[in-house]
Design a binder for these strands. Structure first.
Lengths: 337, 337
DNA sequence: CAGACCACTGAAAACGTTGCCAGAAAACGA
DNA sequence: TCGTTTTCTGGCAACGTTTTCAGTGGTCTG
């Protein structure tokens, strides 16, 4: 009792007609349509995506390639993507690379092995062998690159302006009178970290403050690393009066570590995050941070992916979405002295 | 240049041989094997999962049906599942139901439409029409039910002992001298909340303290709701001296709200969470909570699902994994008076 | 030397759909 | 009335694999 053929037999029509009833019911006479519908309802038949996919060369699956599914930043964007995907008849496969290139490639190859129709790439490394002679659009499956974007031109990308965002954040701290502003960065080679560092430096230079590399520590977007970075920074003779974390998760860890050291926030040290994850508001003190429009990022990704899935060629595009400084309680005027 | 047939032609063998080279290379003579391998490497051929799936009636996809992917509790279990799935050649589809039954059902139907081979169900409602006459194992696809488990017997389930865990948590608070212990619960109809409430009541009764329903507020596992619940509780004439939140996320919200009201934790109020998400340790003060073994839950789910995927019939099973009280800084002795 | 066995290979039939094509019947126009 | 169009329907081939079956030729064994 599996397939469309059984249904066809039971309804006394041909398989083609059953298929039509499902996909183009208006092409079928009411009489036969009802016959077929009756059998379908009675048996609870659902067409096999496998058969249809094979025939139509489509799986209706998308893969999201994500460096770390364990990070809270991802979920609002994943949720938005999943939701839109669903509306359009696609399912979302989750590819957690755990920062491993081999995994990136194996997920990417799903497009080739017809396990997915499109790719949402959240890492900067394009896991495909590309031939520079041939236009990208002919070598790649439908794809959008977001958040950590590749420097390869020609890709549809979605991001925020990390340089400007970081600059704005640091400027805000400068405006509060801070002079020694530390940074706890993400993975040093990640584009987001590079850009935020750039913004950090711009802001400092703009204020005439020399950049002290000793105030820059790698937190690798991890809770533990951020704790160590914080301790190291606070062990300095000339402690920073403000710490700019390149993610909220690190900021939370930073906050906890500072509390642990008996420091008052923001009286002794100001702490700034990045992302505005849902927990930021519930930190103590509530975390000042740069909000990324995560849901909009997800929406925009699908906006760029859907046309490709419908056969339109991939187009270069660099969509920059607006960030926003969220001023809360973890930052305050620089301590006197 | 798509399929196995082209490869076969190029290598001067039959498609069967190519297939064998890929899946059972030891059955093929070294000579032909090398011929085929050479062509495969040269062309970068990857077999289509669609074709294979159709033939083998297998998609190598699993769906995780999750009420709210946005909740940090899920991340480690998702990661564990995804990782084991991958090792076993499966991909993980994400099904975020956003608490909607229609979505639950639509994800569940993926098993029927051959879009997935198995289901990981994290909600208590079994989204299938089942006929009580027929044994469950004949009506359901490979499936494991975890965390929020159905009361239907016969399903393979993975959970912790929520009753005992909550009892233990409350007993710990009682041991600190608290008498007015409030509870901020999850969704009232969810089994986890029901069980934790049961444990809460047991503990109170065990200590000879009458249960005051006014001290029980629904937080629905949400940040906003928990904030309101906290305010409501603290507006009482006889304020609770301890608040037991049924999730860490709510506890974080509770903590933030109490801070906002100028209360000291744990001096004025003790706060307890549930789950031990990664952020719990980084709250201020570090959150005392009941740790759920999330990674182990994920592992155990796959342990129960894999045999089913390999054709073994579904078996009733109720795997209870150990929880653990994590005593940190957000709880302390009840204030005098 | 015959018979049995072995290692290897290819042909062919599925798996469940869909979409093109062509034909039948009905409706229409002249 | 007779073409002509329209509406509806079924047949058939294809999508890309895998697996069974039936060889072929060669190597053993007694």
């Amino acid at each position: 009792m599996t397939g469309i053929i059984e249904i066809a037999k039971a309804a006394n029509v041909s398989p083609s007609t059953v298929s039509r009833v499902i996909h183009n019911p208006e092409l079928v006479s009411e009489e036969k349509r009802n016959q077929v519908l009756e059998v379908i309802n009675r048996t609870g038949y659902t067409p096999s995506n496998l058969g249809a996919g094979l025939r139509k060369a489509k799986t209706n699956n998308l893969v999201a390639i994500i460096p770390d599914v364990t990070s809270a930043f991802n979920y609002p964007v994943i949720r938005a993507i999943e939701s839109i995907a669903l509306e359009n008849g696609y399912s979302l496969l989750l590819g957690d690379t755990q920062e491993l290139e081999s995994r990136e490639r194996s997920f990417a190859s799903m497009a080739r092995s017809r396990q997915a129709d499109g790719i949402l790439l959240f890492c900067s490394n394009l896991p495909f062998d590309i031939d520079p002679e041939i236009p990208l659009s002919e070598q790649l499956p439908p794809l959008v690159n977001a958040c950590e974007t590749s420097d390869l031109p020609g890709l549809p990308k979605v991001n925020i302006d990390n340089v400007a965002a970081a600059e704005e954040a640091v400027n805000y701290l400068l405006g509060l009178g801070h002079k020694r502003i530390a940074a706890i960065t993400g993975h040093v080679k990640s584009p987001s970290t590079q850009d935020r560092l750039k913004g950090y430096r711009y802001a400092l230079r703009g204020a005439g403050i020399p950049v002290d590399d000793g105030l820059i520590e790698a937190g690798n977007y991890g809770l533990k690393d951020a704790e160590q970075a914080t301790r190291k920074l606070m062990a300095r003779r000339d402690r920073p009066t403000a710490i700019f974390n390149f993610s909220d998760e690190m900021a939370m860890s930073c906050l906890a570590t500072l509390h642990d050291m008996g420091l008052r926030i923001p009286d002794d040290v100001s702490v700034m995050g990045f992302d505005d994850i849902s927990y930021a508001e519930y930190c103590y003190p509530a975390l000042t941070t740069v909000a990324q429009p995560m849901t909009e990022i997800g929406i925009e990704c699908m906006e760029l992916l859907l046309p490709q899935l419908n056969g339109k060629p991939m187009q270069a595009c660099n969509k920059i979405l607006p960030h926003r400084l969220m001023i809360r309680k973890s930052t305050g005027p620089a301590p006197a002295g």
